[in-house]
Computed example of a mutant assay.
Amino acid sequence: MPLQVTNVQQREHVFVSALPGLEPALESEAGVLGFSPRRVEGGVELTGAPGLHQEANLRLRTASRVLLRLGRFSAPDAGALAKGLAGLPLSSVWDGRTAPKLSVALHRARFKGPDAVLAAAARAWGLSSVERAGVLDEESSEGLTLLVRLEGDTCTVSADTSGEPLHRRGYRQEVSRAPLRETLAASILVLAGYDGVEPLVDPMCGSGTFLVEGAWMSRRWAPGLERAFAFERFPGFDAADWGARKARAEAESLPAPRSALRGYDINAGALGTARRNARRAGVTLTLERQDVRTLAAPAGLGPGLVVVNPPYGKRVGEAEDLPGLYRALGATFRRAFTGWRAAVLVPEDTGLIRALGLPEERNLPVRNGGLRCRLLLCTVR
């Protein structure tokens, strides 16, 4: 196919990635924000005016990373690949001095590994060599990272605009023993239909991630307001325009959450971590030391959403104790939260799911830190 490039001055094409299984949450959130998403494997595609990649990084709380599409072309061999790479419009993202790093993905391509792609890129850009990037979900580079995806004979090239993975909001400088990614917590709240107004309760809150993310949703606080992004180092970056975008987002936020937020945990240290994380996030949480086995219904709160990420027996707690804990958790739900909606992230273990004893109205496969899990969504009765 002929070289097709994105003219970033006229129209932007963006791919936004999500954690595995959470594409529906990202699609839903992006649609509510007016991005007109198209769901694809691994995330959503967006098209819009210049600056779209900045808005996506700034506002999407369920996204993992934002990639700006630079071009797509046919690359049946190394020569065609080098020619296509040489024709890409890189001036807006690369200053031509520091060599970009490449993240390479090969799917049924004719190349025998990433080294051939790196060599073709070096020839295309007149460099002595090009370094391969690490795993982007875990790492960030000081310079430009380009993603080269070869699927059959088709090559798609994108620029990473996020830098640090988007779950790193900046507020969570301390974590509990089994931390939950901020993007996963936000996705679960979206899938559970949390509206930012109804009460939100976490009976095993740990470092408070569900509650802080819920508070930000309730405040309409954009998750990227207090962190830096890779696109701020692009040669075409307009600091004044970016400042205006951030100012608009901040002006749309509310001074305090509209929702009552309650968190409980038996571990006093975890509650201290949650309080400090919330303080850094600019929110105040109501937190109490309580055992989930004896937890009473929150006084004065009508039905809302109760959300929990209980131990899995792999990182915290002993596996032999889990069935009893899950039975107690289910009993507390039925005793204290009848009529509430529930979202429970559990390991992919049918015995533990049965021990909960909750109706499985929706049972979605997700991953938490590489572990296969199920997200149970139901109304407690």
Results as ranks from 00 to 15, higher is better:
P199F: 01
A249L: 14
T286H: 13
G269L: 04
D153G: 05
R258M: 05
A281P: 08
H167Y: 15
L271K: 12
E174N: 03
V197M: 14
A159T: 03
A228C: 05
V190G: 06
G269D: 10
R220C: 09
F231Y: 08
F231D: 02
K246T: 07
D195E: 15
L146K: 03
A274S: 05
S162P: 09
E164T: 08
V157K: 10
A192V: 02
W242P: 00
G263F: 02
A230I: 00
T156P: 05
G214P: 08
D195Q: 06
R227Y: 03
V283S: 14
Y171G: 03
K246W: 00
I266E: 12
S187H: 07
A222P: 04
Y194D: 09
R149P: 11
A260M: 06
A185L: 13
G152Q: 07
G196V: 13
A185K: 07
A185C: 08
E250P: 04
E232I: 01
R275C: 04
R181P: 08
N267W: 10
I188H: 10
G272N: 11
S162D: 06
D202T: 02
S259H: 07
S176L: 01
G196N: 02
R219E: 13
A251I: 04
G152C: 03
V201M: 00
L147F: 14
A270E: 01
L254M: 04
I188M: 14
E252G: 10
W216G: 14
R220M: 06
L180S: 11
N267Q: 09
W221G: 02
D241A: 15
A256T: 14
G208N: 00
R275L: 02
G208S: 01
V175K: 05
A274K: 07
A274L: 06
L211H: 14
R168F: 01
A222I: 14
T156Y: 03
P257A: 04
A256D: 02
P179F: 06
A256C: 00
R262T: 00
D153H: 04
T273F: 06
S253V: 11
G163R: 01
T209D: 04
A192Q: 04
A159F: 10
L271R: 05
T284E: 15
W221M: 09
E226M: 06
E252M: 03
S253G: 09
G163Q: 04
D265A: 12
S207H: 09
L180H: 08
A215Y: 06
L285S: 03
L150F: 09
L180V: 01
S259V: 04
A222C: 11
L271P: 02
E164N: 12
R280Q: 12
R262P: 01
I188Y: 10
G163W: 07
F234Y: 12
L189I: 10
